[in-house]
Design a protein around this nucleic acid. Structure first.
Ligand SMILES: [Zn+2]
Ligand SMILES: [Zn+2]
Ligand SMILES: [Zn+2]
Ligand SMILES: [Zn+2]
Lengths: 131, 131
DNA sequence: CATGCAAATGTAATAGTATTACACTGGATG
DNA sequence: CATCCAGTGTAATACTATTACATTTGCATG
């Protein structure tokens, strides 16, 4: 669990929930977990998630509408991140390789595209779940 | 517009709508366009989209919950596809480069991950819209 | 032609995800 | 104190997708 300093109460609660889960959760799943702590509305979760994403503590998995705590202590350092998502057990691996970013940047550069956010998500079955 | 043979009535209507749009549309936008043609329920759109995706005529853009007609006549040939999506004007470019797929396959191979579907989506501003 | 099956369709209801709008709090700053 | 600003609480609404069930269509087969 990365440095969770400078987080507000709600942000801490959401981040802890995601860290403890050890895998991706939907915003509404987080809400359900935090009802005991006084959460009542989805917006409380979405607002916290937004800040956590800005700080690189949490990533959004676009293809499954879920959020996951960053697994990499130095994540804010690396640029483009890829995720391997197991559709069977839900486990997520964070892949950080320069080799992935390079060909994409080659394209954006030569096409003068100003990239702001890149999502790379591999869906399938992990080693445990295939067979 | 690729060979649209073997398509049922609804599939043809959805595919034509996407092709004519020249850019991504949400399922409900497609539904609105096709109400005149007799469409009444979202499921009619989703069912057609599913078949069109299977045939490689249409791609789903995960990060914006939208669908786009394939721009590449030989798309079924290429494997992993990347998309550059302009958040300002909505234009989508389909990027097909072996160099992108290679490092990802290197990871999946060495981690024994059985990839089924990969989404690569670059969000930002296109040449026209930046500045 | 008649029968039977599989794919496609029509429709309603529901589930799941995300945002807008407005009111309020508390602390920092001058 | 007056002001500002980030964060919060709450309700209502909008947007996206699926489940369930009834019906129709196209086509292969006897
Ligand atoms: Zn990370
Ligand atoms: Zn698994
Ligand atoms: Zn394509
Ligand atoms: Zn643009």
């Amino acid at each position: 669990m990365k440095q969770a300093a400078n987080l507000t109460k709600n942000q801490s609660l959401v981040y802890s929930t995601l860290s403890d889960a050890g895998g991706p959760l939907s915003a509404y799943s987080i809400l359900d977990v935090l009802r005991d702590e006084g959460f009542r509305a989805p917006l409380q979760v979405y607002r916290a998630l937004e800040k956590l994403q800005e700080q690189g503590l949490v990533h959004r998995l676009e293809s499954i509408n879920a959020f996951v705590a960053c697994a990499d202590p130095g994540c804010s350092g690396h640029g483009t991140i890829a995720f391997a998502i197991c559709d069977t057990c839900g486990q997520v691996d964070e892949i950080s390789r320069t080799a992935i970013e390079k060909p994409l940047r080659a394209w954006t550069t030569s096409n003068e595209f100003e990239a702001e956010k890149t999502a790379i998500e591999i869906r399938g079955k992990c080693r445990e779940c295939k067979d």
